[in-house]
């Protein structure tokens, strides 16, 4: 063995899983509306719960959901976390907030970014609104909504989060 060369101690052994992801019927309808700048959910015919993004069925009742419901750009923070650790290939610089937000008119939350906020002031029940990209950049993607930002409205009590109508606190 040559003494000049360094001894091998590691090998690169990456694993790549290549998927072709098909959205499915309900998410495809949802994404077609997102491309038009409209946030939609689907309502369960049995329990009336509105799901966003819709999966095409109600997990609680086990029935198909078909009725499409237009949701508000306003939403409520259900939970959140402040991210301090940079994620490889993520252009967003920490610290930043990702939050579970419930749009008005829906009963479940989805994860999105928050911005234009003081991280330390974000709290559960805070009112926020979607900030969309310019219309020319809209595609079949959730990041048509760039982020959510705080709005000047009263907090939603914890037991009311996820129960507001599409008209928000007025409804």
């Amino acid at each position: 063995m040559s003494e000049e060369q360094e001894v091998v101690t590691v090998v690169k052994a990456p694993v790549y899983l290549k998927y072709n992801f098909t959205a499915g019927a309900a998410p495809a309808r949802f994404l077609a509306q997102i491309k038009k700048g409209v946030l939609t959910g689907q309502r369960c015919p049995k329990c009336s719960a509105v799901y966003v993004p819709p999966r095409g069925s109600c997990g609680g009742c086990g029935v198909a959901t078909e009725e499409e419901v237009v949701l508000s750009n306003k939403a409520t923070v259900q939970s959140f976390t402040i991210v301090y650790i940079p994620i490889p290939n993520n252009p967003i610089q920490p610290p930043y907030i990702i939050a579970n937000v419930v749009p008005d008119g829906a009963n479940v939350s989805f994860i999105h970014l928050m911005s234009e906020c003081v991280n330390e002031d974000v709290h559960i029940g805070a009112r926020v609104e979607a900030v969309w990209k310019p219309k020319e950049e809209w595609g079949f993607a959730m990041d048509n909504i760039r982020y959510y930002r705080p709005i000047d409205e009263p907090n939603v009590p914890v037991d009311q989060i996820g129960k507001l109508s599409v008209n928000g606190q007025e409804g």
Binding site: K12, L17, F21, T22
Partner: peptide, 13 residues
């Protein structure tokens, strides 16, 4: 709607 999606685990052993 279809989209290619790659999940990579960049292990060094």
């Amino acid at each position: 709607l279809n989209q290619a999606f790659e999940l990579g685990y960049t292990y060094t052993r």
